[in-house]
Design a binder for these strands. Structure first.
Length: 616
RNA sequence: GGUCCCAUAGCUCAAUGGAUAGAGCACCUGCCUUCUAAGCAGGCGGUUACAGGUUCGACCCCUGUUGGGAUCACCA
């Protein structure tokens, strides 16, 4: 039991003794004492003063006296305006430090026997991954790590959107214009290679459309369909999809290819496999560079027909209903949603049908009581409908569904747009941040004498640390402005700032090793100084912070915690000397405290998917 | 139009209903003869979009307003 829980229970008992009122220990509010006041923790007395029927200051004084009698680890207290500020004894902090150093599981909870599935990334296969995917992937990965840390068995999955019109466009484009080129023959990464043909297709379509606009058929369409006052230009902008479906030659060829794929045509399926294979090789590389992975991959080509049995099930249970034309619907108007189609009148499924089927399949595959879907906030409505529908169907996992909805990533210039070429490519971005790290490192010459491989490894960690922290420090729900220049900053509130505090610690640890310094005297040290207590308080808070981050699916809590801890360490480093401390017990204590800070920083950043360099 | 989300320093972000709303960037000033200055300290910068309400206490909860975004397809 840590000191906060001890205090809560003691306060509850004391209020009972003094005033005969019962207060739940968990309801006792205890915060770290703000810097300008004396103490480690502050108990908020206002709510208790009511039970005491005394003024907050009087009650605080009485409760403080009683607590000091009963809790051995309270060394002192003071009262300021209804706040009871508690000093925790050095003895408690000494014990805490040595116990946490001996606990390799510090910050983690034991296995809870429960299983959770986390779905993230889930890209289309017609284009390489971009900045938006990076946010998704980092959130998914970090949440997986967090859930594991608090005791869950985690299954990491993605569903790859490997079929449909998009990939057919790339296929057709390659078939017509590729001249037998391959990623191998051109030296282009597979996903970029396929993406290039997608872009080429869109170019060709644009050309075809421009040409078509000069034909009599276009005149007819314009005259027949234009809205009042609509310019020719505006009209054709709006008309593009309709044109693609009704008039485009390339459009017809793509639809034909999709039909052949659905019919299982050998040549088409073969081409599809080949091109997706290239894409997967590219994705593997990107995931590897990002340091993430999956336990199981689902493919839309395997799941897109799922869900039909659920339709029957839902009709039988009266959750769904059938309209005259044969289409099947679910009516969620009583839950504040609309009626939603589940099955088209021609009997084919829609997006949500597939998701219903996939959810059930996954439950059968893994038996996870909970599923976390990491998907952008654009699909909030979809997931509300999906979850509500699964609940009404009585699915056993329906209450454990969570949509980790995250805001869009925008550039300072606004949204990323494929057409305007403003999409930030994931591979390019990683290369760039690592390059900047190298540039900055070269000026510092701190890694001279380190092997080139090791240097590169450290630069990779620093560059990616900057990028990842920049993204992870923002609350998932908020849309974020991604300024490429700031994302590679290595100073201030950044990943490298935190890494640097770790590197400083690492330097100390190496010196202990080299000089064979004994740390036995640490326990004799005292009194503990404010800079040291600040560190201890922060470390003390770590397990609760991990739990909170996991429960809220919010890695940004942990990111901000790590920054705060690093800041405290830098201050400690600046203010107090470790090796030149006044006494050998002070030196030993500060080394132990540094070591523990290093453990927590490494562990916390690890949960964010950020690695620590050993020099920088 | 209905529903949902967001609004905090010039910019990017913090703040379980608790004390004087905090960091970083930018700008200005100091600090390397001592464990790595990717650091530390200080200055500048706020009507927490607006108006009410609940509360001993509100950036936080409730109501309304304004501004921005998303969504409401027999698309995925």
């Amino acid at each position: 039991m840590n000191i906060i829980q001890t205090l809560q229970q003691a306060v509850s008992a004391v209020v009972q003794q003094l005033y005969g009122e019962s207060v739940e220990p968990a309801k006792v509010i205890i915060n770290p004492t703000p810097a300008d006041f004396e103490g480690d923790y502050s108990i908020v007395i206002f709510p208790l003063a009511k039970a005491a029927r005394k003024s907050p200051d009087v009650a605080a004084q009485e409760i403080g006296e009683a607590l000091r009698q009963q809790v051995v680890d309270i060394s002192d207290f003071n009262v300021v305006k209804g706040f009871l500020n508690i000093h925790v004894s050095d003895r408690y902090w000494q014990t805490f430090l040595s116990e946490s150093l001996n606990n390799p599981q510090f910050g983690r909870q034991p296995k809870n026997g429960s299983k959770v599935m986390v779905e993230y990334s889930s890209p289309n296969t017609n284009k390489p991954l971009h900045l938006g995917h990076i946010r998704n992937i980092l959130l998914g990965w970090s949440c997986s790590q967090l859930l594991e840390a608090v005791g869950y068995d985690v299954v990491k999955v993605q569903i790859i959107n490997d079929r449909g019109v998009a990939i057919c466009k790339s296929m057709l484009s390659w078939q017509k214009f590729g001249e037998g080129q391959t990623p191998e023959s051109t030296g282009i990464k597979g996903d970029h290679f396929v993406g290039d043909y997608y872009v080429l297709f869109e170019q060709k379509i644009k050309e075809e459309y421009t040409q078509w606009q000069k034909t009599p058929a276009a005149d007819t369409a314009f005259e027949g369909r234009k809205k009042a006052e609509q310019s020719r230009e505006d009209f054709f902008k709006e008309y593009k999809n309709k044109w693609f479906n009704d008039h485009s030659q390339l459009g017809a060829e793509v639809r034909d290819m999709l039909l052949r794929w659905e019919a299982g045509d050998k040549a088409t399926v073969g081409l599809w496999r080949q091109m997706n294979g290239w894409v997967y090789q590219g994705f593997e590389k990107t995931y590897g560079d990002l340091g993430v992975g999956f336990d199981k991959l689902y493919y839309e080509s395997d799941t897109y027909l799922l869900g039909k049995d659920i339709v029957e099930d839902g009709l039988g249970k009266g959750v769904f209903f059938k309209k005259e034309d044969g289409s099947v619907w679910v009516d969620l108007t009583d839950a504040g949603h609309d009626q939603k189609i589940i099955l088209r009148s021609d009997g084919t499924s829609v997006y949500i049908t597939q998701d219903l089927g996939t959810a059930r399949m996954r439950y059968h595959d893994f038996g996870a009581e909970r599923i976390v879907y990491v998907v952008a906030s654009e699909q909030d409505y979809h997931f509300q409908v999906l979850f509500e529908t699964l609940k009404r169907l009585g699915e056993p996992y329906a209450n454990g569904l969570y949509h980790l909805s995250y805001g869009l990533v925008e550039l300072p210039s606004g949204r990323m747009k494929t057409r305007e070429g403003t999409v930030v490519d994931a591979d390019d971005l990683m290369t760039e941040v690592i390059r900047i790290a190298g540039e900055q490192s070269g000026e510092r010459a701190e890694m001279d004498g380190v092997s080139p491989e090791k240097q590169l490894e450290n630069l990779r960690k620093i560059g990616l640390g900057a990028l990842k922290f920049f993204i992870m420090k923002v609350h998932p729900k908020k849309k974020m402005i991604f300024n490429p220049e700031e994302s590679v900053d290595l100073q201030g509130q950044t990943g490298p700032y935190i890494q640097y505090s770790y590197v400083r610690i690492n330097g100390l640890m190496q010196r202990i090793e080299k000089e064979g310094i004994s740390l036995d005297e640490a326990a004799q040290y005292g009194p503990i100084l404010p800079q040291e207590r600040d560190l201890l308080l922060a470390i003390h808070e770590y397990p609760a912070k991990v739990k909170e981050a996991a429960e809220n699916y919010d890695p940004s809590l942990l990111a901000n915690f790590c920054y705060d801890l690093a800041r405290k360490y830098h201050r400690f480093w600046h203010d107090l000397s470790v090796f030149n401390a006044d006494s050998s017990s002070a030196r030993a204590f500060r080394l132990q405290l540094s070591r523990m800070t290093g453990h927590v920083l490494r562990s916390g950043m690890g949960l964010l998917g950020i690695e620590m360099p050993d020099r920088m």
